[in-house]
């Protein structure tokens, strides 16, 4: 095992983590501001990926496809918020879970109805394909590097939005006291729709970006959604900074665990058994990380202390 291989895996972990951040940021904002647990966030991820694959197939332009993913997921999010979600803010979490579970069924089967069960493919554009040489002699796919950079830029943009703009002030105020900002003349329902659409758009964008590496298929959103939950539990609900750090931790733990645990076990048992056992335990690595954080800090690394 060489230093170059390790560096590559660290970059892979970063890339995975940054994409998880796009999902987790929306979820944590929606929870922080509206107090809503949204299981259907993974469906919006899927909507983005399907929109991107369709537009890329029709026009051949990757940038148009990304724009389509962002816009269609944001629109789907706004629509869902107006029709269903806004009736759920005053309900308990149980109703929210069931209603958003119902939304998953509708989105998943509806997409299967429209697009069929076969996966679609979204190609990496020519100007982003191929490897790039990094300092230290590391060859790394340009597209994945672009994902890392883009994800970090979006994180920066979100931070600026939340901490330096008027909307950001309203969002932060909404997290603290929704009645007060209503009394101060802010249109809360519009703010809620906006935040929900923003989160949905980020999820859709993540779906399209990841869809170009993996395949675009029904049900692609839920595994990512559950990982995003792990990220939020680790980072702390409502904290964008927590979401970023949690996402990077989860991305690195998952990628590096999958590589190093089998290698580590090879020191103790025979290789075939070590690979099987190692990969089985590696799939648990991030959840063990979550358990450790829970024992140490039940409200997450950056969550509000209760």
């Amino acid at each position: 095992m060489t230093a170059i291989l390790i560096a590559e895996q660290v970059l892979n972990g970063l890339q995975f983590g940054v994409m998880l951040f796009l999902m987790a940021a929306g979820l944590t904002l929606i929870f922080g501001v509206m107090g809503l647990i949204n299981l259907a966030h993974g469906s919006l991820y899927m909507v983005g990926a399907f929109a991107a694959a369709t537009i890329a197939g029709a026009t051949g332009s990757f940038l148009l496809a990304l724009a389509a993913a962002l816009i269609s997921a944001a629109l789907a999010g706004a629509l869902v918020e107006l029709v269903v979600i806004r009736r759920l803010y005053d309900r308990d979490h149980l109703d929210q879970v069931l209603a958003t579970f119902a939304l998953i069924l509708i989105f998943s089967e509806g997409t299967r109805w429209l697009f069929g069960s076969f996966p679609l493919y979204l190609d990496i554009p020519a100007w982003l394909s191929g490897p790039v040489m990094l300092p230290g002699g590391i060859q790394y796919p340009l597209y994945r590097l672009a994902l890392i950079v883009l994800g970090l830029l979006i994180a920066l943009g979100l931070w600026l939005l939340i901490s330096h703009t008027r909307i950001g002030v309203q969002i932060r105020a909404g997290e603290n006291d929704r009645e007060m900002i209503g009394a101060l003349g802010v249109n809360i329902s519009r703010l809620y729709t906006l935040v929900f659409a923003l989160g949905a758009g980020l999820a859709g964008l993540a779906g399209a970006l990841v869809g170009a590496i993996q395949s675009v298929q029904v049900g692609m959103g839920e595994p990512v959604l559950i990982l995003a939950f792990v990220v939020i539990v680790i980072g702390g609900i409502g904290s964008i900074k927590g979401a970023l750090i949690g996402a990077l931790l989860v991305g690195l733990a998952d990628t590096l665990g999958g590589i190093f645990l089998p290698e580590l076990l090879k020191l103790f048992t025979d290789p075939a058994k070590a690979t099987a056992t190692g990969s089985a335990f590696a799939s648990m690595a991030i959840y063990i990380l979550m358990a450790v954080v829970l024992v140490w800090r039940p409200t997450g690394l950056f969550g509000a202390r209760v």
Binding site: V84, A99, F101, A102, L105, I106, E109
Partner: peptide
């Protein structure tokens, strides 16, 4: 899809 609508 219909199950989802019933649940909603």
């Amino acid at each position: 899809v219909f199950l989802g609508l019933v649940l909603l």
